[in-house]
Nucleic acid binder design. Sequence first.
DNA 1: ATGGCTTTATGCTAAAGA
Length: 254
Amino acid sequence: MRIATWNVNSIKARLDHVKDWLGTAQPDVLMIQELKGLEFPAGDFQSLGYESVFAGQKTYNGVATLSRRPQAVVLNRLPGDDADEQARYLETDIDGLRLVNIYLPNGNPVDSDKFPYKLGWMTRLYDRLSALRAEGVPFLVGGDFNIIPEDRDCYDPALWTNDALFRLESRQKFRALVNLGLTDAFRVLNDDAGQYTYWDYQGGAWPANKGIRIDHILLSPPVADRLRGCAIDTGPRGRDKASDHTPLIAEITG
DNA sequence: ATGGCTTTATGCTAAAGA
């Protein structure tokens, strides 16, 4: 079972790229983020053999999970704050595997209310994943975490020290998620530095490989035992009018 | 980076992203 995650930076602007990539990469599941609108082209994906579930809002955020197998929606908002309207969380079930698709808040600037919102969102995510662990539900969390876990996950750590993606508080929260017993699917198989999933549009970051690794797939213990591979596909980032993120793919048995 | 791109929006500048 091939499961991928990709922040597409507008599904409307990236529809052709996503359709092309589904055709070449042939994932069984694709979790996409930052759809940026209320309209979702479910029909386009249906004709390619994918059933889609969508949680969206106007202009910002938005997540969707495409699956070749039937999937059931468990949650389309992150629990823990009824006043939170942002579409950043989608939890579905496919054949007993729980798929958690997230677009974790950016958090910048750190002196604004966006940073405490990010940290609070991570606490709520911790609580939800902790409950799934307690229930013994096998799960996979994929998405744009907006977290640089370690120095080797960015081209110049000194530049990122005070950024919400790399601040100690953010990384501590990420470590707490991992400490629930989760496996970073990419890092358990690849120790190299310079392995990125995002490159800024500005300053020639992509050709210079000045990127950051902020898109992740975390696995609960029984799913980690089924992991057979995990890779970043840099192909889509090199295309004309690309998203600033590129897909991350995990291969799971079963 | 005092942000040099990109996207969206009762749009024509502003906000957000990372």
